[in-house]
Every structure is written in C-alpha cells, then in structure tokens.
Simulated assay, not measured.
Amino acid sequence: MKAASVIRHCVFIRFRDDIAAAARQEIYKDLEVLCGKLPGVLSFHARKNVSPEVGMDKGYSEGFIIDFADAGARDTYLDDTQHRTIGGRIVAAAVAGVEGVFVFDLDM
C-alpha cells in the first residue's frame, strides 16, 4: 500500500487590470481563512510573481499554493461550498474567465 503523500496545489492567475489590489487581497484572505478551517491543510501562501525571467510568466502575475496532507484533503477542499464560491470570484476576476487561471497539482 502506497503511503499518502503531500499534494501541492498551485494556482496562478492573470487578473484583469480593473481588479484592484485590495480585491485581490480579499480573495487571498478568504482562501486563507477557509484553509484554516479544513482538515489536512498544511500551508497556504499567496504572492505576486517575482521571477526575473521576463515573459516566462505568460501573464500569470499572481497566485497561491496550498499544501495538503494528502489527495483526500485536497479533494475535500475542492468540494467545499466556500471554495467553489471563492473560485467563482477568481474566475470572474481573471482575464478571459477560466482561461486566466492555471491550476497545477504536484504529488510531493
């Protein structure tokens, strides 16, 4: 039987220009609060991209990473009603909606 491993959930966002920094921070704060309530969340980090590699970000200027104890904890987060609401706000704030959001999970 394979041992459970940490899942690193990476989400990168191309926010529309008209979305104020305060609105972006409110989204991240709401995610942080949600993560504090769910079992199996190990960490939450939200930041702007600071890579010096010009153009490599493809316009994804900000994002967040959540580490989950295992895939089950990640799936609980994905199924959470509050997560779906916040996710809808992210899509609404992104350039071209869902096209402006990139999600990538790593099995650590």
Rank of each mutant, 00 (worst) to 15 (best):
L34R: 07
K37N: 12
F64Q: 09
G55Q: 04
G59L: 05
C35Q: 08
L38H: 06
S43P: 02
F44Q: 04
I66Q: 03
A46H: 05
I65W: 00
V33S: 11
G36E: 09
S43I: 00
L34Q: 07
F64H: 11
M56N: 10
V33R: 14
C35T: 11
F44R: 06
F68D: 04
L34H: 07
V54A: 14
H45C: 12
G40I: 05
M56T: 13
G72R: 08
S61H: 02
P52Y: 06
V54C: 08
P39I: 01
K48R: 15
A46Y: 01
A73I: 05
V50A: 13
G55L: 01
R47F: 07
V41C: 14
K58M: 13
V41M: 09
Y60K: 09
D67H: 12
P39Y: 01
V54H: 11
A73R: 10
C35Y: 02
A71F: 01
V41G: 03
I66L: 11
C35K: 05
I66V: 15
K58N: 13
V54P: 00
R47K: 07
P52A: 10
N49F: 04
D70K: 04
G59P: 05
G55N: 06
F44T: 03
P39V: 03
N49Y: 04
G40T: 09
K58D: 13
S43F: 02
P52I: 12
S51L: 05
F68E: 03
I65K: 01
E62D: 15
F68R: 04
E53G: 03
S51F: 02
P39G: 11
M56L: 15
K37C: 07
L38P: 03
F44W: 03
A69H: 05
A46N: 06
P39T: 11
S61L: 02
E62W: 00
Y60G: 09
E62H: 15
R47A: 15
F44L: 06
S61W: 00
H45L: 13
F64R: 08
H45Q: 13
G72L: 04
F64K: 09
G40L: 02
E62Q: 11
R47M: 11
L34V: 09
N49Q: 10
E53Y: 09
A46C: 10
L34C: 10
F44H: 05
V41D: 01
K48G: 14
A69V: 09
I65G: 10
D57Q: 12
S43W: 00
F64W: 11
